[in-house]
Write a protein that binds this DNA or RNA. Structure first.
Length: 439
RNA sequence: GCGAGGAUGGCCCAGCGGUACGGCGGCAGCCUGCUAAGCUGUUUUUCCUAUGGAAAGCGUGGGUUCAAAUCCCACUCCUCGCGCCA
């Protein structure tokens, strides 16, 4: 949530940010209309309450002196009736105002490119060496702004064929018992996934992050305060008959676990690495990536999360990016980094980097990781503060993928396979216990 | 699932119908040879005609009352027993 005091003082940055994101421009005007009404009401309500309080004190004193208090009681009753009406209407105004404010997105960082469409996001860098098919070369060069290193290949393999041939995934039976976008992982693929998780936890843990495995379900209060309407609708499954939701990322439980808390200054920054299953409806993705395990309803992820002082968050965004980049490099995966443009940012993020791996068989860059600075937006909704000499202030929160298992496994399969063999990246071998998977 | 206790400001804790006690910690100031001890003030959110005034706030939501932390009802969570259980 944004800071409504700042919005009242100076709405222009919020209008600009909203426009850059393609949001509903009327939100700001609607807020001001509701806020004026709210402020008019609260003044009247406070005056009435004040009057009632002093009457009450007077009554208690008169009772001690054994005087007759009936007329004063009558007056308080009348005030209460008046208040009941006003308070009810104020409640409605307040709810409506909250709904309006909560739809106003975070302020954009000035380095975010203002435009729409993923293809307009700003290229930051390319790393690694990609295997590129002749027919994809133009696309590869375009999306790396001619900075991409590559070798031409005519042999690429789809992860669907590979897993099929090696018996690593059973999609038919998963369909039978669960449905589309589910999979049964088998044999070495199970081990590969566990290896990736362990490897990522060690990798991030060595960089000063504590490790947390949060509950895979959290209640409505926690999830609504940790996320926004858009990602909620797209991703989140609800447990029927319970106030519980399956998490779509460990970001949400990690952020909300400190809800309504005040962190001591010396505790900051708080660096937390989270491991969890992730459940996603993929509601907005009909017909996309329907085969295999590239886009599924269930995967596992190692996440990085930082709670920090406001003045440090931009440095930590770079740190999170570097951590994930180093991790991708250590796996030997070629990738590019993009600075996601305003129109494609979620409403919490002031800035977001995506790391997109090169997938030789798909002939495309696809998202492997996403790293955001939510500044104080998420912390304000969750009411997470830190104690400082200038009074308690909201922390800044940042989150970023370390490894999302299914995507990373597909990347490994597409990048390191021959016809009958999936080669395991060298750094992972101590974790898998095998150096390749064969037919 | 059953029974019993509990939830109060950053933390601990008192109050159990009359408008939040005290302690610890934090911050500011005073004092002192000193960053120790001591003393004083302060410590949440909101509104306003703003060096001040007022409102809200005692797990959540209702109710009773002139007045609710306090009484009543419902719910949530925690602790301890008992039961069940990977």
């Amino acid at each position: 949530m944004i800071d409504i005091k700042k919005l009242r003082e100076n709405p222009e940055p919020y209008r600009k940010s909203l426009k850059g994101r393609g949001g509903d421009q009327d939100l700001i005007d609607k807020f001001f209309a509701l806020d004026e009404q709210w402020r008019r009401n609260i003044r009247i309500i406070n005056e009435l309450r004040s009057r009632r309080n002093s009457l009450s004190i007077e009554i208690s004193q008169m009772i001690k002196r054994k005087e007759n208090v009936e007329t004063l009681k009558e007056e308080v009753k009348n005030i209460n009736e008046e208040l009941k009406v006003l308070e009810e209407s104020q409640g409605n105004v307040e709810n409506e105002r909250e709904r309006t404010v909560s739809r106003i997105p975070n302020l954009l960082n000035e380095t975010v490119p203002v435009c729409f469409g993923d293809e307009n996001s700003k290229f930051v860098k390319f790393s690694g060496k990609a295997r590129v098919r002749e027919e994809n070369l133009e696309e590869f060069m375009k999306y790396t702004e001619n900075a991409g290193k590559y070798e031409i290949t005519d042999k690429t393999y789809s992860h669907i064929d590979l897993t099929d041939r090696m018996g690593l995934v059973d999609l038919d039976r998963a369909g039978k018992i669960s449905g589309a976008r589910f999979y049964i992982s088998r044999n070495q693929l199970v081990k590969l996934e566990l290896a990736l998780i362990n490897y990522a936890i060690d990798f991030i843990g060595q960089r000063g992050f504590s490790i947390v495995e949060p509950p895979p379900m959290i209640n409505g209060n926690a999830i609504w305060k940790a996320t926004d309407e858009g990602s909620f609708n797209e991703a989140v499954y609800k447990i029927e008959g319970e106030d519980l939701y399956l998490i779509s990322t460990s970001e949400h439980p990690i952020a909300s676990m400190l809800m309504d808390e005040i962190i001591e200054l010396k505790e900051l920054p708080l660096k937390v690495s989270g491991f969890s299953p992730c459940f996603r409806k993929e509601a907005g993705a009909h017909g996309k990536d329907t085969k295999g395990i590239f886009r599924v309803h269930y995967f596992k992820k190692v996440e990085q999360f930082i709670f920090c002082k406001p003045e440090d968050s931009w440095d930590y965004l770079e740190e999170l990016l570097k951590n994930t980049e180093d991790l991708m490099e250590s796996l030997g995966l070629p990738y590019r980094v993009i600075n996601v443009c305003s129109g494609e940012l979620g409403s919490l993020a002031a800035k977001k980097y995506d790391i997109e791996g090169w997938f030789p068989h798909q002939g495309k860059f696809r998202e492997l990781a996403s790293i955001s600075n939510d500044t104080d937006y998420q912390a304000r909704s969750l009411n997470i503060k830190y104690r400082s000499s200038e009074g308690n202030q909201f922390v800044h929160t940042l989150n970023g993928t370390a490894v999302a298992t299914t995507r990373a496994m597909v990347a490994i399969m597409e990048n390191f396979s021959t016809e009958n063999r999936i080669n395991i990246p060298e750094t992972l071998i101590p974790y898998t216990g095998f150096d390749s998977i064969t037919v």
